Simulated assay, not measured.
Amino acid sequence: MRLFLRVPHTLLLGTFLLFQACAAQSNLIEGEQVTVTKETLQYYLYYPEDYLSNPSQTYGLLLFLHGGGESGESQEEFKMNEPPKLLEEGKQFPFLILAPHNPHERKWWNTAAVMQLLDSIVAENRVDINRIYLTGISRGGNAVWEMATQYPDRFAALAVVCGMAPLPYAHWIDREMPIWVFHGELDETIPVEESDAMVEKLKSMNYNIQYTRYKGVGHNAWDRAYTTDSLYTWFAKQKRIN
């Protein structure tokens, strides 16, 4: 004689779901890994003319990030554009200028590594931590927006020249930090609409922002932006209030 045990369908279903939950839980483990960002960054560092003669004075510092055209193995190429070109020509500035080189031709800036470099330079020199400025062009301009969101309490002002401008970044930037955006209307590499939209967004959120939109200028808006003396005067006036 065969005996058949009837098991309610709901009980079978519940048992099956419980088995699934236990199986899934058994495959879920906790872990932890310490990661380290390593990057070899060559750089140029400019000191104001009176830096050595005023050992008790602190100075501002401008961090400049170049574009994709200067990225790669050769560090010499990025001195062909401003502001490094201006430094080569002997122009004087009232603050230190740190200009690192992105060694990767096709990669974005490693902004974590750039920040480590900046921290080292600040620690080793007489830099006023409330007067650190940030600027960049093209690919470096995109990195400027990124750093402004990742480190919103570090910079006193930023200037972006023909850079990509992801709109969501607007919500993470320090509202008290002055911003100056430059872009050429005929830019075929990074459309001017990138800056148009970001500026409009930031203005709608009551940010302290100004915009220079060059007529008849393409992607090389940096030729005009960095030869504008009022840009450096503007930078020198800015100071964070912590």
Rank of each mutant, 00 (worst) to 15 (best):
H171L: 14
A236S: 13
D50M: 05
A156N: 08
H66G: 03
R106H: 14
P8W: 07
I97G: 01
M1R: 01
K91I: 12
S120N: 08
E88G: 07
T228Y: 12
T58H: 07
P94R: 05
A99N: 05
P191T: 10
T35D: 12
M164N: 04
I209R: 01
V161A: 10
T227V: 08
Q238T: 07
G136K: 00
L118Y: 04
Q75Y: 14
T15G: 15
R175I: 12
A112I: 08
A112W: 04
S53L: 11
M177V: 09
E185Q: 12
E70R: 12
F16T: 09
I29C: 12
Q25V: 15
K201D: 06
I29F: 15
Q25S: 15
M205C: 02
L11H: 01
T37H: 05
E185M: 08
L231E: 06
L87I: 14
M205D: 08
P103F: 11
Y47L: 14
A148K: 05
Y133P: 04
W108E: 13
G14T: 13
I179Q: 03
A156E: 08
V114M: 01
Q57G: 09
A21K: 02
A156M: 10
G218N: 10
G67Q: 03
Q75D: 13
T189Q: 12
T10F: 12
V114H: 00
L87A: 01
S71Y: 04
A221W: 01
E124M: 04
Y133A: 02
T227E: 11
V161F: 07
E73G: 07
E146S: 14
W172I: 01
G140T: 05
L28W: 04
V144L: 00
V199M: 12
S230P: 06
P84S: 13
H9P: 14
V160D: 09
L28S: 02
W222G: 02
V36F: 05
A112R: 07
N220L: 09
I121F: 05
K203G: 00
P94H: 04
K38Q: 14
A197E: 12
A113K: 08
L98R: 00
W180H: 07
S74W: 13
E82Y: 10
V144N: 00
L62A: 02
M205S: 03
T135P: 13
C22T: 09
I190S: 03
T212L: 03
M205I: 01
T40G: 09
Y46G: 04
R106G: 04
T37W: 02
R175A: 14
Y59A: 06
K85Q: 14
E200T: 15
N110T: 06
E76F: 15
I173T: 09
L167Q: 13
Q42L: 15
V217L: 02
T189S: 11
S204P: 01
K85F: 13
Q116F: 13
I209V: 13
W108R: 12
E194D: 11
H101Q: 15
V34T: 15
E82R: 06
L12H: 06
P103S: 10
V114A: 01
P83M: 02
I97Y: 01
M205Q: 10
L65P: 07
R106M: 14
Y43W: 13
E194T: 05
T111A: 03
